[in-house]
Amino acid sequence: MPNIEVNGKSIEVDEEGYLVNLSDWSEDVANHIAQVENLSMSESHWEVVNFLRDYYEEFQIAPAVRVLTKAIGKKLGADKGNSTYLYELFPYGPAKQACKIGGLPKPTGCV
């Protein structure tokens, strides 16, 4: 398994860069993964990542994009609950990229 180095600590990730152990996650780890993904974490990015982490905590899965979009619209408002907004923040897919940054597994059904 590959590793990433954050604050002098070696953290295990899979071939695609997802954390192997959810418990290894921290904000510094998130910023590191974001950097690898060529993203700079703004408040809006954090809002989505934190939303995903809360969703995972409650349901034990990472939601599909369609479900994420709908749920965000409900919680954060319709201006944010649409795929244009989410893809602007996470160009390679909001579920995929934001999950990776949030230390969560790849969404179920996402290839």
Partner: peptide, 14 residues
């Protein structure tokens, strides 16, 4: 073992 019972509550959102 991973507890997937909470996931049944997500079905509504799907």
């Amino acid at each position: 073992t991973k507890n997937f019972s909470p996931t049944y509550r997500a079905l509504d959102g799907y």
